[in-house]
Simulated scan of single mutants.
Amino acid sequence: MPSLGRLHLITDTRPGCDPLAVLRAALPVARAELVVQVRVTDGTTDRQAYDLARRVRALCAPYGATCLVNDRLHVALAVHADGGHVGADDLPVAAARRVLGVDAVLGATAREPGAAGRAVAAGASYLGVGPCHRTTTKAGLPDPIGPAGIRAVAEAVAVPVIAIGGVTVATVPALRAAGAYGVAVVGALSTAADPGRATAELIAALTC
């Protein structure tokens, strides 16, 4: 199983965003510390998701960065991604593990210790935990859990906890102090004027 980087970049496929341009700027800076989660909107066809994931996988490979596909595990298999990530409305973790195999990276979403423990027992390699702060990049999310919520989950499991939701450079130190292994971002890079510089700042905050 690939080692897990601390900075997770979730592709932003909203209108006006160019996830591949952001990735090209981030990869030379973060290299193997970067995990790219290919996430697409609900209206995206499997063919479109496949085309994006295939291009992301090709960009990640020379840098040793990890490529995962959110939700659409058949696409992850088709592009030979390093694994996938499943949310509450996707395949159950145990079923996802059977689909991907024992060696794949498998992330699962959780926001409280009980669900986190069950996901790990079912085969999750790491947990995406949040939202830790308010965010506008995804609609319909529950209330933020803050660093205290991150700490509760991190103390309950032995796998890496990746904090997600409204993460900025300024909030990284408190999340790391709460036990987060790393963070997942969307807008912090996709809306940055200089994604390469923003990546460097996030990596510095995560590894200091």
Score class of each variant (00 low, 15 high):
residue 7 L to W: 11
residue 7 L to C: 12
residue 11 T to D: 08
residue 13 T to P: 02
residue 16 G to S: 08
residue 18 D to R: 11
residue 19 P to F: 09
residue 23 L to R: 00
residue 24 R to W: 11
residue 28 P to A: 12
residue 38 V to E: 10
residue 44 T to I: 00
residue 48 Q to F: 10
residue 49 A to D: 01
residue 53 A to E: 05
residue 54 R to D: 13
residue 56 V to T: 14
residue 61 A to S: 15
residue 61 A to N: 10
residue 63 Y to H: 15
residue 64 G to M: 05
residue 65 A to V: 14
residue 66 T to W: 04
residue 67 C to D: 08
residue 68 L to C: 10
residue 77 L to C: 14
residue 78 A to F: 13
residue 83 G to Y: 07
residue 84 G to V: 03
residue 85 H to F: 14
residue 86 V to I: 12
residue 91 L to K: 00
residue 91 L to R: 04
residue 93 V to P: 03
residue 96 A to M: 05
residue 98 R to Y: 01
residue 99 V to A: 02
residue 101 G to L: 12
residue 104 A to S: 11
residue 105 V to W: 07
residue 107 G to V: 06
residue 110 A to Y: 04
residue 112 E to Y: 01
residue 118 R to E: 15
residue 121 A to W: 05
residue 129 V to Y: 02
residue 129 V to C: 03
residue 130 G to L: 06
residue 131 P to Y: 09
residue 135 T to H: 01
residue 135 T to Q: 02
residue 137 T to L: 04
residue 139 A to T: 14
residue 143 D to K: 04
residue 147 P to E: 05
residue 148 A to T: 12
residue 150 I to A: 01
residue 155 E to R: 12
residue 156 A to N: 04
residue 163 A to K: 01
residue 172 V to Y: 10
residue 172 V to G: 10
residue 173 P to D: 04
residue 173 P to M: 03
residue 182 G to R: 05
residue 183 V to K: 02
residue 184 A to R: 06
residue 186 V to N: 07
residue 197 R to E: 07
residue 199 T to M: 00
residue 202 L to N: 05
residue 205 A to Q: 01
residue 207 T to I: 02
